[in-house]
Structures are given as C-alpha cells and as structure tokens.
Design a protein around this nucleic acid. Structure first.
Lengths: 231, 231
DNA sequence: CGATGTATTATGGCGTACCAGAATATAGCT
DNA sequence: AGCTATATTCTGGTACGCCATAATACATCG
C-alpha cells in the first residue's frame, strides 16, 4: 500500500453494537429521562419483554447500571432504580463544583480563544433552547458546555466522573432548569464563567463555576425538601 | 414485642453473599493486587476455571468491572485489564487533590478532636506498617486515613469517587510508596494535613492535602515515564 | 522462506432451563 | 374480622448449550 497514506486511511469501521450495548443505552436513557422512576422495581422478566432480549442481556445491563449508581440492588427485593436523597444530591453538586471549578480555572489559564468560542456557542444553544421551551435541549446543550470545559483542557477522566454523577441527578436537573427565572439567571451565571475565561482570570473562572453549581444545588435542595415534605 | 427495644434489636442479619458478589471481590482484588496485570486478557472460560463458577457469573462480574474502569472491552479482542497511561494517571491524582483538599478543609472547619484522633491513629498505623516493611499495610492504612477524612465530614459520595479512581492507580501506588525516602516524607506530609486540621486552619489543610497528592503524583509520573521509556 | 488459502480451534454473544427462596394469595379457624 | 397455616406464584441465582465470527495453525506453492 502507498506508504504516504496514514495507517487508518482505509481501516474498516465496525458499525454494529452488540445487543447488550444497545440495551444498556436504552435502559440508561429510560432511567435518565424518567420513564423508570426512582424506587421502581426493575423486574428482569419485565425488562426482557420490554426490550425484546434474553435475561442474560438484561442481567448484564443491570450489573453495569448498578456499578454506575443508577440501579440499587436490595437483598430479597431485586434491582430498583436508585433513589437519591437530599444529602447525596448536595454532595454531588459539591463535587461538581470542585471539578468544574478546576476545569474553568484551567480553561482561563489556557488563554485559547477557541475555548471561549466553543463555550459561547453552547451558551447560545442553551438560550435558544430556553426560548423554544425545549427543556431536553437545555439539558443537552448544558452538557455540551461542560464537556467543552473539560475536554478542551484534556480532562477526560474528570469529565467522566462529572458525567456519572450528573446522570444520577438528571431528574433534579430537569426540575431545576424549569424553576422561575432560571432561564435568565442560569445562562447569566454561565456567561460569567465564560467572561472570566476570556479574560484569562483563573480565580474568577473558578469562583464563577463554583457559584453557578452552588446555586443550582440550592434550587435542587429546595425542590427536594419540598418533595420530601409532601410525602 | 417489648416497645422499649430498638427496632433493630433482633433483626436477622443475612450473612451470605451471592456467588457473583464473591467472584466480583476476588477478581477486583486480583487486578488491584497485580495478579492480573494491565493488558492481560480476561478470557471468560479461563476465569470460569480459576473461580469455579459459570460463564454467567463471570460475564456479570466483567460488566461490573468494565463500568468501574478496571476492565476494558476491545471489539474482537474481548476483555482485558485496563491500562492506565501517564495522562490518565496525572488526571486521577489531580482529581484526588481537588476532592481530598475539599475534605481536609471541611475537617479543619469542623474543629472536632475525634477527627484528629482518628487521623493520628491511621498515621501511626502507616508508620508502623513502613517499619514492619508491610507495604500492603501501608496501602490499607493510607486508605483508612482518607476514608476517615471523608466519612467524618459525611462525604460518602466523594469518598466513593476517590475510591474508584484510587483502585485504578493501585499499581502505581504500590510503586510510589516504595520509593526512596517515601517512608519518611509521606507520613510527614500527612502529618501536616493533620496539624492544619487540629489547628482548624481550613486553607492550610486544603493546601497540605493538595501538596501531598501532587507529590505522590509527581513520583508516579516519574515512574511511569521511566517505564514507558524502557518499553 | 514468504505468501496465500484452507482447516481447525477459541471465544464472546445470546438464549433457555431449572432451582430455591421470597412474596403473595387463599383457606380455615376462632 | 383478624390471625395463622398452607399453597401457589414470582423472581433472582446459577448453569449449560449453541452459534457465528475471529484467531490461529497448518498445508501448499512459487
């Protein structure tokens, strides 16, 4: 073969995922999107019927999701969608703060206009999603914003950690983004992060990121507290 | 039943773990302890023979460990013990710094002598393990130190995150603790953390924790770089 | 000796079955 | 109606088997 070609120039891509991978995506999405709710039992034979796969596949999927923290396995109760109490939720927001703050600081110190540009694009998408009342768009554009924050400074491991934690609070996130004024305040706080990054101010970027996630956490705490009172 | 009794006074404890749980512990320990090394293939039928369980159990264990990041699944290669490159290792040390720093600060702000006492006990255990040349004792006592740091300020979620990450660098950790002078410098750096916590100085505790993990990371980086040069 | 083609073996994907224990339903008694 | 005992159903634990594909071994040819 022509020595000039890069070694991947004609590599065959493998298009198909296994049944297990497809099923994993489906069940995870069903939990994250609220189709299965916290506390719901995940009965293996029911999942087989719903997904159209064998118990082998279902069991392997459940093992994976248990490890991710989305599923809890209670003795003699079988698997259920994991519940998240107020204390755990608070801790997740706090950890996100520590890691997102760190990433924001690194972005600022990088002084790369491309980072600012990419973040601005996500922010614009968030605003547009709010305007279109597209809440799932708001969530995915927000994820895009943070993915940029981490991956532009090569922090894939931290991004993985934040992702796993964020998935566990997705239900809360879908609630917090809908609260009064959040459509204005949320993007404004994120704009502060971007501003500090544009100015190369690491400390300000760090604080702005911390502040944003702390406020989101405070809203979530109020919502959870109200929910637990109502029960 | 006598109303004076606490509701758990006669509760039946369930002593037995499932085969899957036992197997999961065995395989995880085998990876963490270096019995299986990074890059080793984990052939299902071989694991069945070694563990004395069916492929169902083995597959579920592999799914769990994949999700934890200890096992990687390559298309048409099957599962292997995950490798950790220099970049990922550095990121793990950095994340630990952010979270352990946060926990150290919270410990200092708590101003609770019991925390200091518990940390001193772990530190003493680390020193004794070094003196006895018991490296696995050093590792487990160090884990005890950090578990205390997190759980004494009710940060179980962060502790879970740090634990998952630490397990991935256990091989590196067993190397860093053996380097020259580490038996003296390591505990001395940890003593600084405890000192700042005793004095209620959150900022100093934060910085000392950051410093300690950064130095451990630097040693690990040097070891990994040497290792990759030798290959 | 290297390249190619073919045969054989290895291995992961996936499905099905059986068992034991827990949960639930039902019957009987007071 | 409530309690207890028994029967039935449900469900997770675990094992085994088959298939298809990939990897490896081997044979042949130039």
């Amino acid at each position: 073969m022509n020595a000039d070609l890069p070694s991947t120039a004609i590599r065959v891509e493998r298009p198909n995922k296994t049944l297990r991978e497809l099923a994993l995506d489906k069940v995870r999405d069903a939990i994250v999107d609220g189709y299965f709710k916290p506390g719901d039992r995940l009965v293996e034979r029911d999942l087989c019927a719903q997904l159209g796969v064998s118990r082998t596949i279902v069991r392997e999927v459940l093992r994976h999701l248990e490890s991710e923290g989305l599923v809890a396995n209670l003795p003699n109760k079988g698997p259920i969608v994991a519940r998240l109490d107020l204390n755990e939720a608070k801790q997740i927001y706090e950890i996100r703060g520590a890691l997102e703050g760190m990433a924001a600081r690194l972005c600022a110190e990088r002084r790369d206009p491309a980072i600012v540009e990419a973040l601005e694009a996500s922010l614009k998408g968030i605003r547009e999603s709010y305007a279109a009342k597209d809440m799932s768009g708001v969530l995915s554009q927000t994820s895009g914003f943070y993915q940029t924050l981490f991956t532009k400074v090569d922090r894939d491991v931290a991004w993985g950690v934040v992702n796993l934690l964020t998935v566990r609070i997705n239900h809360l996130r879908s609630m917090t983004i809908k609260t009064k004024n959040r459509d204005v305040e949320g993007p404004a706080q994120m704009e502060k992060i971007v501003e500090a990054i544009r100015e190369g101010d690491g400390e300000a970027a760090y604080k702005a990121a911390l502040d944003h996630v702390a406020r989101a956490g405070a809203i979530a705490e109020a919502l959870l507290a109200a929910q637990q009172t109502a029960e």
